[in-house]
Amino acid sequence: MNRIDEVHVNAPSWGSGWTAAVQRPSEGFHKNWAREGFADQTVRQVVRVTGTGTSARIKLSHRYGSSPLEVAGATIARTDRGAAEQTGTVRRLTFGGADEVRIPAGGEVYSDAAEVSVAPFESLTVSLYFARPTGPASFHAQAYSTAYRAAGDQLAAADPAVFGETTVSWYYLAAVELADGGPAREDTVVVFGDSLTDGFASAIDGNHRYSDALAERLAARGTPRPVLNQGIGGNLLLSDSAWFGDRAGDRFRRDVLDQPGVRSVVVLVGLNDIGFSEIELPTYRPNPDRSVGELIVGYRRLIGMARAAGVRVTGGTIMPFKGSEYHTPAAEAKRRDVNDWMRTSGEFDAVADFAAALADPADPDALAPAHDSGDHKHPNDEGYRVMADAVDVDAL
């Protein structure tokens, strides 16, 4: 066996652990550091994985950068609590054997493998040190997970108190992949869409998105599988947005089909295409008046891409939003027509009827009060669990 064969045989088979869809630097929702970026600062970020492994690597994305990004150092560790790491688990991450890495504008990079054992529903802490100014940062706005910042190189800091600044966004971190020495898993589920997938209004650091509940449900029935969340708050099926990410059809391949071991996807998008057209606010743009026919063409594009890749696709019906700023007779008519098409067309491999599961029995055009976060279009934590229960796991 020559050296090339040895490298190939010994290379880890990487599987899914955790992901976040990357967005352009922007303001909105909560305070964040994306526009200002970082300079001589360390950022510590916590993610909960749904896969398992004895080694890990991270993926850093500089997709929306305009100049090269220098990462002066990085570590990964098992999470203790908050910004604290479990003693003895901190591992220095390298990139092609080097402690530092330079990522070109628009580029992405994987770290080398690091020995760290993790089981489903355990958390890992990734710390990144930026010695030089980064410029605006590619990020994920609505993490609902606390990120911590400290001045200087604090990669080795054992005292979490040095991380005195926080936001609830993720920066540059796009994925954590896991390996355990065996063959890569081929059963990953991706949930894809807008804020209803992203987990808007779920408890900070609670891991109560519907993707979390779905992964927990699969594990409880004895069929654990990685579940990746690729939602972006405000995302649109048919339009790009500087605030809310690339349109679903354009990001579907990289955010869903390119994930390791992906077997199925649950698509829940279209609410904002309908709702934005009813509102004249700068943040809710572009806001063209989309027809039901246009939306169906958009769904068919996603279905076709998934089928061509051998990935099963479940369509999620659009949930009620009566009482929200989106709701008008025209918007309600579109929601009903889109949902009727999803339920009756047979074009998806399966349908998750989120609308029926969360509707108020006394007024099906509205969310049930017990499941409403208060804005009349996003669920609360219990509502997200009901969403997970509405997915036909056998169809995955």
Rank of each mutant, 00 (worst) to 15 (best):
N2E: 12
N2Q: 13
I4Q: 14
H8W: 11
V9D: 13
N10C: 10
A11E: 10
G15I: 03
T19A: 12
T19P: 08
A21H: 05
A21F: 09
R24G: 09
P25M: 03
S26N: 15
K31P: 15
A39I: 09
D40L: 11
R44E: 08
R48F: 00
V49L: 01
T50P: 03
T54N: 09
K59I: 07
R63T: 14
Y64L: 10
S66I: 14
E70R: 15
V71Y: 08
V71H: 06
A72Q: 05
A72F: 06
A77G: 08
A77Y: 03
R81Q: 14
A84P: 02
Q86M: 13
V90M: 12
P104L: 08
G107N: 07
A114M: 07
E115G: 11
A119C: 08
A119F: 07
S127T: 09
L128I: 02
Y129V: 06
R132A: 15
P133V: 04
S138E: 04
S138L: 11
F139R: 11
Q142T: 14
A147D: 11
A151D: 15
D153L: 13
L155P: 03
A157K: 06
A158V: 11
A161T: 12
F163V: 03
V168S: 12
V176E: 05
A179W: 01
E186I: 09
V191E: 01
D194I: 07
D194T: 05
D194V: 05
D198R: 03
F200E: 14
I204S: 07
N207Y: 11
N207I: 06
Y210K: 09
L214C: 00
A215S: 02
R217P: 01
V227F: 01
V227P: 00
Q230L: 08
G233W: 09
G234F: 00
L236P: 08
L238F: 08
S239N: 14
S241I: 02
W243T: 14
G245Y: 04
R247H: 10
R254V: 12
Q259C: 10
Q259W: 11
P260H: 08
V262D: 01
V267F: 01
L268F: 13
V269Q: 04
L271Y: 07
N272L: 00
D273N: 06
D273G: 02
G275V: 02
S277C: 06
E280N: 15
Y284E: 10
V292D: 07
V292W: 12
I296L: 10
I296N: 13
A308C: 09
A309S: 12
G315N: 06
F321V: 07
A333F: 11
M342E: 06
G346C: 07
A350P: 00
A350G: 04
V351P: 01
F354G: 01
A355Q: 13
A357Q: 02
A362E: 14
D363A: 09
D363W: 07
P364N: 10
A366Y: 04
L367T: 06
A370Y: 07
D375V: 01
K377G: 09
H378T: 04
P379H: 02
N380E: 02
D381F: 05
G383A: 03
Y384E: 00
Y384N: 05
R385I: 02
V386C: 02
D392E: 02
V393W: 00
D394M: 00
